[in-house]
């Protein structure tokens, strides 16, 4: 367990805060932390930046609501980096990032790294409505182009991310060499299928109920793999071969629920 001090807290949207720590961490985009609030609990959080170490937290439960109360100077404890991150191959000239909802945060870290390695980076980010869009301003700074979609059309194109993704995958001038997606599983399923159709490599950051983060307890099983240790980033072809992908998840007890 490591402990650092909070350097900065910023509101991303009505529900999401970004917490910057006074430390950095050697890690890859797509890896995650188990963030611990003593006496309350521990939850997996994706890494939104390595230097300074940054997480973005949606206020969705008792641990995240405690994290939303942190102020500059507060202590924050975590284990990590954990899991396997996104893999970018040498020679890829252009990549496409697809983020839905809060899934955008780890993609920002990936965009930053890719752009600094001279890979042209495009991003499509989607949300239900304008006020749920996060990281848009930050992505503009580290991508060649960022497209926004909202379900209600309150910002960017109306509809879901697939409208823009479909268009970009067949773009003759800058066809992406690979696609990286993070967001709701149904969205990732659609992205994975479209990439398969166009024969474009695709990686997905998947989510299951995680407890130990060490590949031991089995809570985050996904078709015989531990999301915490074998993932959270999976090759889309591997994910598509798992029948529960896009279909159902387990809760804290291990019971199955439809997605």
């Amino acid at each position: 367990m490591q402990t650092a001090r909070v350097a900065k807290v910023a509101n991303e949207s009505s529900k999401v805060k970004t917490i910057e720590l006074d430390t950095r961490l050697v890690c890859e985009p797509g890896q995650f932390l188990m963030v611990w609030v003593p006496g309350v609990g521990e939850r997996p959080m994706s890494i939104a930046n390595n230097d300074p170490l940054t997480i973005s937290v949606a206020n969705v439960g008792k641990v995240s609501s405690e994290l939303h109360r942190l102020k500059p100077g507060s202590l924050l404890s975590f284990r990590g980096p954990l899991g396997k991150g996104f893999r970018v191959q040498d020679g890829w000239k252009c990549i496409l990032l697809v983020g839905g909802g809060y899934g955008v945060a780890p993609l920002y870290f990936l965009a930053k790294m890719a752009t600094s390695n001279n890979i042209e980076t495009l991003a499509v980010v989607g949300a239900r409505t304008a006020k749920d869009i996060v990281y848009e301003d930050k992505l503009y700074l580290v991508t060649a182009e960022t497209f926004v979609t909202t379900d209600d059309g309150s910002k960017g194109a109306k509809g879901n991310v697939m409208v823009d993704v479909g268009r970009l995958l067949i773009d003759k001038k800058r066809k992406p060499a690979a696609v990286f997606a993070c967001g709701p599983e149904r969205m990732m399923l659609a992205v994975a299928r479209l990439c398969l159709k166009h024969e474009i490599p695709c990686q997905l950051s998947l989510e299951r109920y995680m407890k130990c983060g060490l590949g031991v307890c089995g809570s985050c099983d996904l078709g015989g793999k531990s999301v915490c240790r074998d993932g959270p980033v999976f090759d889309a072809l591997d994910a598509l071969a798992i029948k529960e992908f896009g279909e159902w998840k387990r809760d804290a007890s291990g019971a199955r629920n439809r997605i």
């Binding site: 188990m34 284990r79 130990c212 031991v216 387990r250 804290a252 007890s253 291990g254 199955r256």
Partner: peptide, 28 residues
Amino acid sequence: RGHESPVIIETECGLLNAVGYSNPGIEG
């Protein structure tokens, strides 16, 4: 649902766990 996380932590030459018998019940 079992115990609250952290449920497993590393220690010198071992693990310390308190998962708390999380399971979906006999029918599950």
